[in-house]
Every structure is written in structure tokens, then in C-alpha cells.
Design a protein around this nucleic acid. Structure first.
Lengths: 154, 154
DNA sequence: TGACAATAGTTGTTATAAGGAATATCGTTG
DNA sequence: CAACGATATTCCTTATAACAACTATTGTCA
């Protein structure tokens, strides 16, 4: 475990501003992610498992595996195994559709909902702890820039 | 493979601005990372391997395993196996120090340097492709906000 | 209607992060 | 100087992303 802030090297003189922004994003993501993961650890949940449960909470009647994949931040998530683990813990249940036997439906269980509910407050608090010091204006600005960054060249 | 932009859900009404910023960072990182990984694929390098080689290029006489770990963005990287794979490809060489037998020294090979050199231009181009549309001002702003975001409360 | 293309999910595999345990080596202390 | 704490690395294990191959099912077309 290392103190990230202290050993952080300065960007190399040859780095382009674009590369520097990319690097800073990586570093900031690391800090946020690490802290967030600590909070989820209380419920023995990984960030990815948490996100799946959150997605499923949004649709209590369930959605297809493929749709879960569509809503994940990453583009080729290993949904099957992810759901295996969550189902094993009875946080999620799965069933195959009758109309289209290719499709597997996944639904959050009451247990899953309860677990999420227990995390609502700590998650809110952690986000504030991590980013609250930026204030509303800077947060908005950051959010807008991040969105803009994803827009194709145009 | 999905079109990320299209299926991107709007933030839930209940999300705090801090959470939204976190989420946007994740999404933007995903886009950048994915594109970047495609470029590195030309040399059969993962992002992490690339970063290690870059670190080692900065110190041609070599650095210790632990120091590599200190300079990584992530805080508990599996340096040993990372270097195993790079050494297997003759991109890196390792030796144990004589003064302190605990310490393993890692050094980039001429092959490793050549490989990196081949990537310098595509990497620069990709960063520009990904973020150039932001322009110098917004890039600076984004970089500063990301750094600020990492500062502790207070 | 049958052949084949497209779709949805599963399985295998590799690289990686991360936490813990284990091993070897050095530094400190009484 | 010996014991023990600290340090550096390696090894084990789990979860995950990602890519590819595979299997089963549905949709399309001639």
C-alpha cells in the first residue's frame, strides 16, 4: 500500500496535453475507485457486482443478460459469471424466457434489494467525501468536460 | 461490441452531482482506454505492459521491482508476473542486487526500447484523436480539475 | 419448408488488480 | 551477537475485462 500522492511523478516534459489529461484521469479514477471499493467491502461486494445490482434495482421485474451488458460501463463484461456469483449469494435470480429460449432474464431478489439499501447512505457519503470539496460549479464543469471528451471529433 | 454513446442511460434523478461525476469519469476512461488498447495491440502489448516499459525507459540503467510498483497508477500491481511476461518476450531483463539480495532490478532491453519507439507516433496520434477536440484551454481545465479532485478535503 | 444467417448466452483462456500468505534477506535492538 | 521486526519479492487465490470459440435458438430467404 503506497501513498499515491507522494510518489506521483510529474508528467514527462515530452508528454502532450492530451496524454497528461489521460494520465490524470487514470490517477483520479484510481483514487475514487479504491475508496469506493473499500466501502463496498462492508457488504463483500465488488464494484462491478454493485453496479449490476444497481442496474437490476432499476428494473425490478428483471432484464435480459444482454441488456445488463448494454448498461455496463465496460463493453464486453463477463455477465454470465458475474451473475453466477450473485445468484450464488441469492442476490439475483435468473430464468430463461419461454418466448425466446435464447434469452436469460435476471432479476434482483429481496435480499439483493436489502443489501443495496444498506449501502445507499455510505455510498452517498463516500461520493461526497471524495468529490464534495470541488463544489457544485466545478463538479458541473468536470462532468461536462468528461462528457465532451467522449464526443467524437467533429 | 456495443455503441457506447447510444445506449448510455441518463443519470438517475436521485444521483448526487458527485456520483454523476464519478460515473462520467468511468465512462470517459472506458472510451479512452479501449481505443488506446487497440493501438497497443499492434505490438501485442497490454496497457499495463506498455506503462511498465515506459517507466523503465525513463531509467535505462534500471529500477527495482518495488519502485516500478510505486510508479504504477494502481497501488498493488502484480509486478512479478508482469515482469515475467515482459522478460519472456525479451523486452525486459531482471537481476538480483548483490548489495541487498532482497531487491530485484529490472531494466528495459534494446528490444523493448525499439518496440516503444515504434509506438511513440501512434500513441501521440491516438491521444490527439481522442482528446484533441477539447483544445488546450479545456484540456488544462480538465487536468486541473482532475488533480484537484484527488486533493483531500480541506 | 429447409438452409443458413443472426442472435443470445456460455465456456475457455489470458492479463490484470488486489489481498493474503510465504520465503528470504536486511536492519535494529538489547 | 542473537532475536526479532522490517523489508522485498514471490506465490496463491479471486474477480474481472476481453477476446475467441462454441452451442442453442430464432429469423430470414429462396
Amino acid at each position: 500500500m503506497k501513498p499515491l500522492v507522494q510518489t506521483e511523478p510529474k508528467p514527462k516534459p515530452g508528454s502532450s496535453p492530451e496524454e497528461v489529461a489521460h494520465l490524470e484521469m487514470m490517477r483520479t479514477m484510481e483514487v475514487l475507485s479504491h475508496r469506493f471499493a473499500q466501502v463496498l467491502k462492508a457488504e463483500d461486494l465488488s464494484e462491478t457486482q454493485y453496479n449490476v445490482l444497481r442496474i437490476l434495482r432499476g428494473d425490478p421485474e428483471g432484464i435480459s443478460c444482454g441488456e445488463i451488458g448494454n448498461r455496463m460501463v465496460t463493453r464486453d463484461s463477463d455477465i454470465t459469471r458475474l451473475l453466477d456469483r450473485l445468484e450464488k449469494r441469492s442476490l439475483v435470480s435468473r430464468s430463461r424466457e419461454s418466448k425466446d429460449r435464447r434469452t436469460v432474464w435476471a432479476r434482483i431478489t429481496p435480499e439483493g434489494l436489502k443489501l443495496l439499501a444498506r449501502l445507499d447512505k455510505p455510498v452517498l457519503a463516500t461520493h461526497f467525501e471524495l468529490l464534495g470539496h470541488l463544489g457544485a460549479k466545478r463538479l458541473k464543469l468536470l462532468t461536462d468536460l468528461l462528457r465532451l471528451a467522449r464526443q467524437p471529433h467533429g
